[in-house]
Computed example of a mutant assay.
Amino acid sequence: MPFDLLDEHHYAESMHNIVLPALRSCRDEGWMEASAPAGGKAHGRNAAGGGISGNQQSETAGKLHYVCYDAERFDGLHLNEASARFRGAIVIAHGFTEFAEKYDEMVWYFLLAGYSVCILEHRGHGLSARDISDPSLVWIDDWHRYVEDLSHFCTDVAQEYAGGSPVFLFGHSMGGAIGAAVLEQYPTIFDKAVLSSPMIAPRTGLPLWLAPMIIGGACKVGMSRRIVPGHAPFAPQIAERDYQRASAPRIEWFQSLRKRHVEYQTSAATFSWVNQALRMSRSLLRQSMCDRVETPMMVFQATNDDYVLEKPESQFVQQVQAGGCYAELVRVEDSRHELFGMPNEAMAPYVKSVIDFFDATVHISVND
């Protein structure tokens, strides 16, 4: 990794004056059709506000929003730290309650390393279609829709930006789980994958064996669209716990984005979302599904993760290895769930490991 991370002491200034102008020069925005629910047509609506005009809302209603960054146009800026070699496209699958713009810093590093970047905002997130009017809540009726949406995005959009070169996956948290499901169900889409704190199983406050019965029962009695206990609507103030083991400038930057855009203020799960996350977890951990994985992967595990369970992450890696595919578990000590939001001394080796893994051209086998 021949470049330095952004200076945390001048983080906002660097983002405004260096990173964002460069990203705007190579940024494309688009919309794609959402997958249809079982037995019905795709439907949805965009959250109000955020500067979307009435005409735009009518044209994009029920569709999924994405942004892409073209490495060739970025290279035209002739930045000293940028790689002159195009290496392919990286698909970023964001986490629960996140949005594309949150990954601007990671996009910057990937572009510097010679990769185009494509980000789909999952249903119920960002500017993409929603099925619930409260912008704080995330609801989904079937987790398979996330998987179908991401797989179609990769084949229809990301392949174009790759231009025949490899397509890689960088999936965080919920996006890591969705990406893992794509690796199981569509084994040839990605050439390599990095799963960062993947939500192989979410923390619910209940034992993993009991949670499906409690959450599923709540959905059956009409609580599908209600907020789950322990979650809350968006609050503009940053909670003290959010600063623990984190880079304060990065956390404050993320929050500033949320405060400016109502579409970015998703902050809480509904019972249906948790129910579907648990169903996805059970599918991910079936050995028969892990046996289908063909894509070499690195799985980064945070050792102080408040959102996903560590043991299922480790189990997933072991089962993929047992199925004959290369999978490496990297434990990041004294780290938080959002590994890309840590201070530079912790984030630098993380970013380097991710890019080095994507850069490696040798074939990785389970016997290496």
Rank of each mutant, 00 (worst) to 15 (best):
A302F: 07
D306M: 06
E345Y: 14
Q321Y: 00
M289N: 14
D356M: 02
Q276R: 10
M347E: 14
E338N: 12
A327R: 07
V354E: 06
P312F: 04
F300I: 07
A277G: 12
M342W: 10
A322G: 07
E294M: 11
D305A: 04
R279I: 01
Q321W: 01
K352I: 03
S314A: 13
C290T: 09
M347L: 15
E333T: 09
P343K: 11
D356T: 14
M280I: 04
M289S: 05
M297K: 01
P312D: 07
E294C: 11
Q301L: 10
Q276T: 02
L309V: 13
S283Y: 13
V308H: 04
D306Y: 02
L278K: 03
G324P: 06
V308A: 10
R292I: 02
Q287V: 02
E294Q: 15
Q287D: 12
N304P: 00
G323C: 04
Y350W: 13
C325V: 03
V330P: 03
A348G: 00
F358E: 07
D334Q: 15
F358D: 06
E294W: 01
E333Y: 07
Q315M: 09
N275C: 09
P343C: 09
D356S: 14
C325F: 01
A360L: 12
V330Q: 12
V317K: 10
Q287F: 05
Y326M: 07
P343Q: 13
C325Q: 10
R336E: 14
N344V: 10
R331V: 03
K311L: 11
V293C: 04
G323K: 07
D291G: 01
Q318W: 01
H337A: 07
A360T: 10
E294I: 00
V330D: 02
E310V: 12
P349Y: 08
S281W: 06
V299Y: 03
V330W: 03
L309W: 02
K311S: 11
L339Y: 10
S288V: 06
V332F: 01
V274D: 06
E333D: 15
M289H: 11
C325I: 01
A302Q: 06
